[in-house]
Nucleic acid binder design. Structure first.
Lengths: 273, 273
DNA sequence: TAGTGGTCTAGACCACACG
DNA sequence: GTGTGGTCTAGACCACTAC
């Protein structure tokens, strides 16, 4: 097929390394030039390979991945190409670059990243985690609505959690969570209660499931009697309803969460650009 | 100071082009190497220069900016450096690249960008603009709270607008808007009413003020009697309160907006990553 | 055919962190 | 000092768009 030096030979990259037309280029330097129909740049292929290694656990959260030069040698491409691949992964928060040190797999354990998914900010003072009270944690069969969001079949196994989050000692968030049953075997209320810190850090450490991305739908609703009691507000109090679907590698949904937020002394922060 | 070829000579870039230490580099290729204390990469300086030209109106919204090669020649740097500067501007939505055509100044007129700042999505069907009914548009002296957010003095002139947005014929959003008085002289209810399309497109076209970025604080509140009447809901209905501060070039605030959203058939969409 | 942005390479040097 | 990411350059070629 290709008489020119081909990178990625023997790898899992499927992209056809084939120049359909007879391009002149005697000393052609760019070795890849898949013409049609599913052309993807080299750096995208590299990015996919690195993502695979992240997903397979070859490099674990918090660890350093190989240097750009090492990766360039491994994939037989230039450092610049690896760099562009890593740039995108860093933009997606899958890895974090630290000058002089290396590139590290991001983790939900770090202080700076703890509030990546919790956008509730107090009117005064710094964001902070309060206590978490687990009300319930049980396995059950997925209702139709949850199954649809998790891309599974109605009746498939899921884990349901209900909990209250306290900020500055006040009940502020009531969460109802559904997790993919297959990914969270052995999750118990005890484990949740013992765990200090973000829930996603527990998922990452104990179940090897990293939340990468989430999508939220936000509404204003009135607190029903049961909710009001749990959050120490009057029935009918306006609450923020936050319906979240969280995704792991490959955009596979693994969690559905409905949060009810008391927004008298906190607000949901969002930046548009 | 510098015996090496210096780019950006005679430009407004202030960064000291000065190598404090005697770096050996005989055939040094990178001409800039400001050492301390306010070092900024060349491409950041280029980015600042391009931003200036955008702000000054040298290239207007919708227009094409010079090609990368032209800009490289203009600033006496390599194409790659210009490229990196433009990459960041594109990431911030100040410009948009179109392969084969050129790089264009973004505008609030384009179809695809109309919903950059309005995150309210209907439960069913596509996002769409409905009618807008202007209730009020007058100049007044800024209250303390608004002045603080706009970074002006209490009592300085501002323009206040109140309006209702209709989605599918139903009143859905009640907006209360304060604009910097100096930037919006001559804005009248008539102009607002006549204008079809996004308000930010009007601001851009008629007043030369582009909204670049915004920050929102979201809460759930109960509709008071007056609000309820305007939105055709019952008093006490939970509404989404969205407090937005919008910024133009240089992160200067120019608008404060408080929106009250009816979220029975719509939701506020947000993606976390 | 010409012009634009997009990809890829190779090599040099700078800034930063750590032993 | 050594190794890491970060910047900058110069040049080649590819993909897309328009004339």
């Amino acid at each position: 097929m290709s008489s020119l030096p081909t990178p990625l030979v023997g790898t899992a990259v499927a992209a056809a390394q084939d120049n359909g037309a007879a391009t002149s280029g005697a000393g052609a330097q760019s070795p890849v030039a898949a013409v049609s129909p599913t052309f993807s740049p080299l750096y995208q292929q590299i990015k996919a390979l690195i993502t695979q290694s992240l997903q397979s656990g070859e490099w674990k959260p918090g660890e350093m991945i190989p240097s750009e030069m090492d990766l360039a040698a491994r994939y037989k491409v230039s450092q610049g190409t690896v760099r562009k691949a890593i740039d995108e992964l860093a933009a997606e928060n899958l890895v974090a670059r630290r000058q002089g040190k290396g590139t590290f797999v991001t983790t939900h354990h770090e202080d700076g990243v703890k509030f990546r998914f919790l956008r509730l900010v107090p009117d005064e003072g710094e964001p902070h985690y309060g206590a978490s009270q687990v009300l319930e944690c049980k396995r059950l069969r997925a209702p139709a609505e949850i199954a649809r969001l998790l891309d599974i079949r109605t009746g498939d196994s899921v884990v349901q959690i209900r909990r209250v989050l306290f900020f500055s000692g006040e009940p502020t968030v009531l969460d109802e969570i559904w997790l993919l049953g297959t990914n969270f075997k052995g999750l118990t209320a005890e484990k949740l209660t013992e765990w200090k810190g973000p829930m996603y850090a527990l998922f990452e450490a104990e179940f090897g499931t990293r939340m990468i991305r989430a999508s939220e739908k936000i509404r204003a609703v009135a607190a029903d009697a049961a909710t009001a009691a749990l959050l120490s507000v009057e029935a009918g109090t306006p609450l923020l309803s936050v319906e979240r679907v969280s995704f792991t590698y490959g955009d596979r949904p693994v969690e559905v969460r409905r949060g009810l937020y008391v927004t008298t002394r906190h607000y949901y922060q969002n930046d548009l650009s």
